[in-house]
C-alpha cells in the first residue's frame, strides 16, 4: 500500500448551529482516485472544501505532508492550498484574463516562476487537452467543456500533489461531459491523486480506486467500486443507488425516444437548449 498523502481524523464542521460534518475520518493515499457520492446536502462539497481549508474545520485534524494543516498559520495554509488543485462546478475562470493569463497567474505570483517559464508550461498543458489555439482567448469565448478543461489545466500548472473535483461536469451540456471526464481519466492514469465528487456513476466505476458514500455528514459506506455498485445494500445507500440507477436508465430511454421523434424535424435553438437542460437533470427554472 502506498504512502498516505492526507490523513483526516474526526473532522467536524458547523455553520452556526448547523452541524454539517459530524466527525469524518479517512486516509487518501498517493495515486488513489477517491470518488464521493451521496445525496445533495450530505456534506460532500463542505468535506472537499475543508480538505484545502477553503472552509475552516470546526474540529478534528488533517495531516498533510506530516503537519496538521487545520491549526497551521495563514502562510502555511496558503502554501498548502497551492499544493492542492481544486476544480469547481462552475469553473470559476477569471473573466478579465486570457486563458494563458488564467493559467500563469498563480505560478508567477505564488511560485515566482518567470513569465517565459510559466507560459511555456501553460502551452504544454493546453496542448495536452487540445486547447493550445485558445491561449489568447477570453473565458467567455469558450464552451463549458473547454472552460472546465482550462480550469483543470490552471490547477495542474501548480503541480499539485492532489486534485479535488467538486461536481466538475454537473454544469455542462450533456455532449460536453465526455471531454472533461476523458481529461480526468487521463490524469488518473498518470498517477494523479484525486478526490472527486460526482454523479457520473460510470466514471466512478471505471476510474475510482475507492468510493465513499456521504450522507448526513458522515461516511455512511465505503468500498471498492465493485463493492459499492455491485453489492446488495439496504438502507440509504441502496435507496440512493436505486434512485441514481433509475434516473440514468430513465434518462437514457427518454433520450433515445426523443432522438427518434425529432430526427426529421426542425428544432429551434431554444427548444434544443431546454431539452438539453432537462436531460442533464438541471432545473430549467434555474
Amino acid at each position: 500500500m502506498s504512502e498516505t498523502l492526507l490523513k483526516i481524523e474526526n473532522l467536524k464542521k458547523s455553520f452556526g448551529k448547523l452541524e454539517v460534518l459530524k466527525g469524518l475520518s479517512t486516509e487518501i493515499r498517493k495515486g488513489e482516485v477517491v470518488v464521493m457520492i451521496g445525496p445533495s446536502g450530505g456534506g460532500k462539497s463542505t468535506f472537499l472544501r475543508c480538505m484545502n481549508l477553503l472552509e475552516q474545520p470546526t474540529e478534528g485534524s488533517i495531516i498533510f505532508d506530516g503537519i496538521d494543516i487545520v491549526s497551521a498559520d495563514d502562510k502555511t495554509k496558503n502554501r498548502v492550498r497551492s499544493e492542492m488543485g481544486m476544480v469547481f462546478q462552475h469553473f470559476n475562470l477569471f473573466p478579465h484574463l486570457t486563458i494563458l493569463d488564467n493559467i500563469t497567474l498563480a505560478p508567477k505570483l505564488v511560485r515566482g516562476a518567470s513569465a517565459a517559464e510559466a507560459e511555456r508550461k501553460a502551452m504544454e498543458l493546453l496542448r495536452l487537452v487540445g486547447l493550445e489555439d485558445k491561449a489568447k482567448a477570453y473565458p467567455q469565448q469558450l464552451s463549458g467543456g473547454q472552460k472546465q478543461r482550462v480550469a483543470i489545466v490552471r490547477s495542474l500548472a501548480m503541480e499539485p500533489k492532489v486534485m479535488l473535483f467538486d461536481e466538475p461536469t454537473s454544469a455542462l451540456d450533456p455532449e460536453m461531459v465526455g471531454e472533461v471526464l476523458d481529461v480526468m481519466k487521463d490524469l488518473a492514469k498518470h498517477g494523479m491523486t484525486m478526490v472527486v465528487v460526482t454523479h457520473e456513476m460510470r466514471f466512478a466505476r471505471d476510474v475510482a480506486t475507492r468510493v465513499l458514500f456521504l450522507e448526513g455528514g458522515r461516511i455512511a459506506a465505503e468500498g471498492t467500486p465493485a463493492e459499492i455498485f455491485d453489492g446488495r445494500h439496504d438502507g440509504r445507500l441502496g435507496e440512493f443507488l436505486g434512485k441514481v440507477r433509475v434516473g440514468t436508465e430513465f434518462r437514457d430511454k427518454v433520450k433515445s425516444e426523443l432522438f427518434d421523434i425529432l430526427k426529421d424535424r426542425e428544432v429551434s435553438e431554444d427548444e434544443l437548449a431546454r431539452l438539453k437542460d432537462l436531460l442533464a437533470g438541471n432545473n430549467p427554472e434555474k
Partner: peptide, 14 residues
C-alpha cells in the same frame, strides 16, 4: 461572484 475569490485562494494566493 464569491467563486472568484475561492478560485484564487484555492490556487494558493493570499
Amino acid at each position: 461572484d464569491p467563486g472568484q475569490m475561492e478560485a484564487g485562494r484555492a490556487l494558493g494566493l493570499s
